[in-house]
């Protein structure tokens, strides 16, 4: 034991150790899961934003990605399934100095929580929403999600998914989001920069991040973790400003990444202050 402590002293801490709850590491995410990378990119974005770290708050829902809030060393809230966005809305409205990040998964944000997402985007609520899209419900063992590709296998679509998935950037754009981007976890550097930009931008920002779930999605669809990452490398193209309606995820045709929307609109808080706080 004494020997181990000595080693720890010699080794400098990981550059992100100040932003993670090191007493909770290792995290629960499986070998090859990309959530840790997305989370890491989020922490880098937070650091590089230059914003005061104490004024960050992270809100998550339920699911694998929902556990992120439990590992970040800022005020963090692990709420109920699908309700991260309305919880974050209350947090932000009651203290507008906070920079509120919603970090959650595709099932949480777009199936059970889909209504909250479109309304927060419509209001232009000042939040940064990061969605780790692993195409499945990982925590419960790999059931079909609102993002699972057509014909993909899951534990509840054993012969293939009969439904079609959401195009999330299109949904965000149509709902009124002022910043919309998509990356994969392999594009971690672009992702970190994108998160930094989104954090510094006022209004509703949405970043979708494709990320492998080798255990509960990959295994059933003949995709090893490295296969998925190689696909992210070979079958994606960065096309900033692409038309949101072209952004369906189909790796046979190629998947478009990049920053699609970056516009300025008054936020909910700005409008509320202007209309309600200047009354006689």
């Amino acid at each position: 034991m004494a020997k181990k402590n000595k080693k720890a002293e010699l080794q400098p801490a990981h550059p992100l150790d100040d932003l993670i709850r090191t007493d909770r590491i290792p995290h629960i995410w499986c070998q090859g899961c990309g959530i840790g990378t997305v989370f890491s990119a989020c922490l880098i974005g937070m650091k590089h934003s230059g914003l005061e770290l104490n004024k960050f708050a992270m809100v998550s829902g339920i699911g694998c990605s929902g556990r992120a809030a439990g590992y970040v060393n800022v005020d963090s809230f692990h709420t109920t399934h699908g309700r991260a966005i309305p919880f974050a809305t209350g947090l932000k409205l009651a203290n507008t100095d906070l920079n509120v990040i919603v970090f959650s998964g595709d099932g949480d944000l777009f199936a059970i929580g889909g209504n909250h997402f479109i309304h927060a985007a419509r209001r232009n609520m000042d939040l940064t929403v990061i969605c780790v899209n692993n195409l499945t419900y990982g925590m419960t063992g790999g059931q079909v999600a609102a993002t699972t590709p057509h014909m993909a296998r899951s534990t509840t679509t054993p012969s293939g998914n009969p439904e079609n998935p959401f195009n999330l950037p299109l949904l965000a754009f149509a709902s009124g989001a002022t910043y919309v981007a998509r990356w994969t976890m392999l594009h971690a550097r672009d992702l970190a920069e994108s998160i930094q930009v989104a954090l510094l931008k006022k209004g509703f920002s949405f970043i979708e991040v494709l990320s492998p779930c080798p255990i509960n999605y990959g295994r059933r669809n003949k995709e090893k973790a490295l296969d998925t990452l190689n696909m992210y490398q070979e079958k994606t193209i960065i096309k900033n400003g692409a038309d949101p309606s072209e952004l369906d995820i189909d790796f046979d045709k190629g998947v478009i990444l990049g920053k699609f929307i970056d516009v300025d609109k008054p936020t909910h808080i700005e409008n509320y202050d202007k209309i309600y706080r200047t009354r006689e």
Partner: peptide, 15 residues
């Protein structure tokens, strides 16, 4: 720093 940023476990970094 790519190893540092791709690692999902905060287990590697470079200086």
């Amino acid at each position: 720093h790519y190893c540092e940023i791709i690692c999902p476990e905060f287990a590697i970094y470079s200086v």
